[in-house]
Design a protein around this nucleic acid. Sequence first.
RNA 1: GCCCGGGUGGUGAAAUUGGUAGACACGAGGGACUUAAAAUCCCUUGCCCGUAAUAGGGCAUGCCGGUUCGAGUCCGGCCCCGGGCACCA
Length: 818
Amino acid sequence: MKRYDFKNIEKKWREKWLADKTYEPDLDRASRPFYNLIMFPYPSAEGLHIGGVRTFTGVDIYGRCKRMQGHDVFEPIGLDGFGIHSENYAIKIGKHPKEHAADSEKNFYRQLSEIGNGFAWDKRLETYDPEYYRFTQWIFVQMFKAGLAYRKKASVNWCPKCATVLADEQVIAGECERCQTQVIKKDLEQWFFKITNYAERLLQGLDHIDWSEKVKIAQRNWIGKSEGAEIDFKIKNSDRVITIFTTRPDTLFGATYMVLSPEHQLISELAKQIQNKDEVLRYIEASRKKTQEERQEAKEKTGVELKGIKAINPANGEEIPIWVADYVLSGYGTGAIMAVPAHDERDFEFASKYELPAPIVICPHWPEKTCPILDEAYTGEGHLVASGKFDGMPSEEAKWKIAEAVGGKRKIQYRLRDWLISRQRYWGPPIPMIWCNKCAKWTPEREENLPVLLPDVKEFRPTGTDKSPLANFPEFYKTTCPECGGEARRETDVSDTFLDSAWYYLGYLILGDQKSNIKNQKNPFDNERISRWLPVHMYIGGAEHSVLHLLYVRFLSMALHDMEFVDFAKASYGDPISVFRAHGLITKDGAKMSKSRGNVVNPDDYFMAYGADAMRMYLAFMSPLTEDGDFRDDGIRGITRFLGRVWNYYNGARTSDVQRTSDVHDVSETVRLTHKTVKKVSEDIESLSYNTAISALMILLTQMEKAQSSFADVAFLLMLAPFAPHITEEIFELRGSKESIHKAPWPKYNPAMIQDETFELVIQINGKVRDMVEAPIDITEEAARSLALAREKVKTLLSGTAPKKIIFVPKRLINIVV
RNA sequence: GCCCGGGUGGUGAAAUUGGUAGACACGAGGGACUUAAAAUCCCUUGCCCGUAAUAGGGCAUGCCGGUUCGAGUCCGGCCCCGGGCACCA
């Protein structure tokens, strides 16, 4: 018996699938479309990460099963190779990003083909392809026209190492998402996308999509909705007011001072009246220089009182001081707060330090007891005290009553901020906007002129200034105004890489399509096709993108929807992805993979040594796809042994039945087990529990080796096909099939066949297992009782004691309580 | 600090959602085949007591309590590990 030659056989089938276009559905005619989407990788020269391989093959197992179940599965692949991550990598290895893209593209597509996925290769795309970013730019233009792209000067996140601004979502614990450098704040004029317009839709939509709960929670927290009121505080001897946002208007009587954020414009407006102006300006300057980390490290709050001006508490008419302090953020609410030390932890800390009064206005046990002396803020609910006519009112009720009484407006506030789109980098799509001095405004490049090509330049490295490297190339930025024809200047920043990936699932459907031509029509999206395939049926990817890609992709889809370019998702409020599952992460021998540990798994070595089928199965067998897994070289052996047994079984060398002649199993038992296995494997694949599906297949194979059954032979092979597509295809062909196994119908089970006739009745005494006996599946309680009590062992143990109680659980156990 | 996950043999992990804890594998030990090795196959394998015995018994799912005839699963308190958010008023 020749051993299974995976190298040649796997290669043979991959070539045949490609030639036969086995995995290329007809996008315009598919009758049961199933969009099986994988987060496309960004290519580094290191190649695919083993975690990526696990995800890709895991998604493919699901897709192959769906295909066999009769769906037209569309499983496209591409490369997210534009953007700062790829550019940084290119710089690191001393290559031009374009050159690096070409190299890594080749390497990635090789690896991606070797894993044996049923990719729709004809539809592959790369975000740095001008044909692709033509649309990225076109989308920017539409966003601008719809008022969703705008420029503003703001205090923004700046990464000194990457020399570019970053979106809030790309700042992780005060550090740059890409290079872990401390991010600082800079005041710059930048392009933003108005994602805040969609805060409520993004929040509501979460209730209508089937996504991993942890991603939904992360998005809810990020959007950060809170309900409260905006209340004006008058400034004494001034016609100006300070507007604050609070979620606790019920504590208004306890507001003993106010705080403005250092960036608050009122400070300069009131400058004349501030007696300690120099001190205030010094404080503002100092806090601006702090990095995020310094702001956090300096746990102790600081601030300076604006001497010479006072605000009036609208509830009780008292004059209260105004402070400036950097614990109040300019980007949230109105950038100003009323401070209620007794009922807010931060205000309490600040007030304690600067000896400001902290009167209690919410009492937790009114009226039974007096209010406690506080050694920390009380932030819970209670009844009002020291609040004039509101005394005794429950705080929840007083919220809106007090807000109303002082003319406050109900207000819903979101933590979410607008998406900063500009990047001062080279390797990205130039933002297609033109500034004309004469017209004194920004105008988008004409759509028929898109793409604005990224010029091929040698000096692509970040400049370290506020400008992109493209600002050094007059031949790039010098242009004419699309409106007046006069001299004008192009925007030299490029757009955020997350804009590239926010629409790629649409790209797979429209790119290279005759009808999708932005030169000739208003709407390049072929809605017939798009509506056929969207929303995406299954999307699997990393939870690390919860508030990055996964938020942006929803936002952009909603925006395109509202602009009436796409109409696929009326039912889902514009949400583009019906089902999302977050996969787990892979460790090696119990530790996180890292170069310094030297435990990085290079997929190429393993695919070479064991073949794609074995690797796919091992990665699937490790743990459920949605959970973390631990990669161990030892573990692969079990799978290669299993595949060897499969090969031998179908080639007439039933490995172990000779030795197991003592076991006499009849065919019907094998058939029954097969029906059960079909049910289990089908369900397990649906829930991405591939590990238990494979375990069931192993058990079935062992049974098949003991007793033959042609029914089991076929069903087993079909069920194994999604996991091990090559070997099953080869066996299928050897058995005389002309069609691909991957288009064969998924086996069905007969519910009548999975019903057992008997079961092991567990006999417990006081909850402890004491005996077991085979019993008919439908045994009555009466019968089970007498059966159990008649057992010798039970009699001995009871030794005449009468049972107090007997609990019978059908198909499971009987528990005798004494 | 807050919000999510998670903690089960030497290892990766199962457990029909309150009903036989450890399926399926890996590793280890023993055996068969072989001149030998590899490969393959068979047996054993949670811990402890105990037996001539694969008789019997006890303890075990991070820790401490509770509910229940019965708890890995539910409740309360605590300890670790991983991830996310972090002065959001």
